[in-house]
């Protein structure tokens, strides 16, 4: 095979020195080693990602409809998709709904940003100091498994029924995952790369900037993704438990719908909560894949 390539490269008229020819032969070898590009077309990729999702949605709707048709509950207690989606549509067209979404998302963003700040500081410190690691390492993992709703009684005592109470629980829910992602990333920086960095003279801040942080980025993003899931759950629990004055949030809408026995509205809000959670999770998924692809971690 290699002979074919070299002769093909020899074909153009000889102009350069023998060195040039060697260069060209090497280029031929390298081209062989690299092989052809295997970039699948975007359309094809989107389709192969989209159809299982679409199928899952169809199956879920069918199951829901089947339960309704079975006559297990009266239709006003458990309405079917055909009664619910018009209600969802009306909701989406109302300004009250969007105000609620805006408030909830504002809390989510603030809470998540604070979680990142806390997670990075705690994770950074713990990954740095062995004493802190021994003291807090397993505590952080323990916090991760603690159901965030268990924090609410304390949060309400500390902060009354306020935004702070909700944020407190969101941060406690999300920050441990983010901290753990960072700690794991720092821990699993490949030792051979650390040695290479040392030979280059990377030390202190430079070591972090050029080696440890980029090396731990994939693990950190995985931590963010998990942290988001916890933040979103904690936020929804908080909005159901901590209802502040006349504010309108998705949680408030949800509990009002329950009080009014408006099941179709309730299910609409649940669908919205689910969709927002999935969308943001997908966003992190995209980020995660982009980084893993860049780092060459994709198989």
């Amino acid at each position: 095979m290699a002979h074919d390539t070299t002769s093909r490269h020899d074909a153009p008229p000889e102009t350069g020195a023998p060195g040039d020819r060697l260069n060209r032969e090497l280029a031929g070898l390298d081209a062989l080693e690299l092989g052809g590009g295997t970039g699948r077309r975007l359309l094809q990729r989107t389709w192969s990602a989209a159809w299982p999702m679409a199928a899952a949605v169809v199956i879920a709707l069918a199951a829901w409809q089947a339960v309704v048709w079975s006559g297990w509950k009266e239709p006003w207690v458990l309405p079917g998709p055909r009664d619910t989606f018009p209600v969802l549509w009306d909701q989406v067209a109302s300004s009250r709904f969007w105000k609620a979404v805006a408030l909830t998302m504002q809390r989510a963003i603030i809470g998540f940003a604070m979680s990142i700040a806390v997670g990075v500081v705690v994770g950074g410190l713990v990954s740095q100091f062995r004493v802190l690691r021994r003291a807090f390492g397993s505590l952080i993992t323990g916090l991760q498994t603690m159901p965030s709703i268990a924090w609410f009684p304390l949060a309400i005592l500390l902060f009354k029924l306020s935004e702070s109470a909700i944020l407190f629980v969101v941060v406690l829910g999300a920050a441990p995952s983010i901290a753990n992602g960072l700690i794991a990333g720092v821990d699993y920086t490949p030792p051979i790369l650390l040695r290479a960095g040392k030979v280059m003279g990377l030390r202190g801040l430079n070591l972090y900037r050029h080696l440890v942080l980029p090396a731990s980025l994939p693990s950190f993003v995985a931590g963010l993704k998990q942290g988001w899931a916890f933040a979103w759950r904690s936020l929804m629990a908080g909005e159901l438990l901590v209802i502040i004055g006349s504010t309108t949030s998705l949680g408030v809408l949800l509990s009002q719908a329950r009080e009014l026995n408006a099941t179709a509205d309730m299910i609409s809000y649940m669908i919205v909560i689910l969709v927002i959670g999935i969308l943001i999770d997908q966003l992190f998924g995209v980020l995660d894949r982009a980084i893993r692809g860049r780092w060459g971690l994709e198989d």
């Binding site: 051979i192 030979v199 980029p214 971690l297």
Partner: peptide
């Protein structure tokens, strides 16, 4: 000044 080339390439994969 010492420069070392490792047995493995040990390149930074993100660069």
């Amino acid at each position: 000044r010492v420069a070392l080339m490792f047995q493995e390439p040990a390149l930074f994969p993100w660069l």
